Computed example of a mutant assay.
Amino acid sequence: MVFLDHSGAVEPTNNGSERLLRPAVVQRKMTNGYRAMWAAAGEADIRTVVDTARLTGSTSFGTILKTVGA
Rank of each mutant, 00 (worst) to 15 (best):
M1N: 11
V2R: 15
F3I: 00
F3K: 05
L4S: 07
D5H: 01
H6D: 12
H6V: 01
S7F: 13
G8H: 09
A9L: 09
A9M: 14
A9S: 11
A9H: 09
V10L: 06
V10K: 06
V10E: 11
V10R: 06
E11T: 11
E11W: 02
E11F: 04
E11C: 01
P12C: 00
T13M: 13
T13A: 09
T13H: 10
N14H: 10
N14Y: 05
N14E: 14
N15L: 11
S17R: 07
S17P: 00
S17N: 13
E18G: 11
R19G: 14
L20G: 00
L20C: 06
L21P: 03
L21A: 08
L21E: 05
L21N: 02
R22Q: 10
R22H: 06
A24W: 03
V25C: 04
V25H: 04
V25Q: 08
V26W: 08
V26G: 03
V26Y: 06
V26C: 01
Q27T: 07
Q27K: 12
Q27G: 02
Q27W: 07
R28I: 01
K29L: 14
K29T: 02
M30P: 00
T31N: 12
T31Q: 11
T31M: 05
T31C: 02
T31V: 07
T31G: 05
N32T: 10
N32P: 01
N32C: 08
G33T: 03
G33D: 08
Y34F: 13
R35S: 12
R35F: 12
A36P: 00
M37C: 04
M37W: 12
M37Q: 13
W38Y: 15
W38V: 05
W38M: 00
A39W: 03
A39H: 11
A40Q: 06
A40S: 11
A40P: 01
A41S: 11
A41N: 09
G42P: 05
G42H: 02
G42V: 02
E43G: 00
E43C: 04
A44K: 03
D45Y: 14
D45T: 08
I46W: 09
I46L: 14
R47V: 03
T48R: 13
V49K: 08
V50T: 10
V50M: 07
V50L: 05
D51H: 04
D51A: 05
D51F: 06
D51L: 09
D51V: 07
T52M: 10
T52S: 13
T52D: 11
A53E: 06
R54Y: 04
L55I: 03
T56A: 10
T56E: 14
G57N: 10
S58Y: 02
T59D: 13
T59R: 13
T59W: 10
F61L: 15
F61H: 09
F61S: 13
F61G: 03
G62V: 01
G62H: 01
T63V: 03
T63M: 04
T63R: 13
I64F: 07
I64L: 15
I64T: 00
I64V: 08
L65Y: 05
T67M: 00
T67V: 13
V68K: 10
G69K: 13
G69W: 12
G69Q: 15
G69T: 15
A70I: 09
A70Y: 13
A70L: 06
A70D: 15
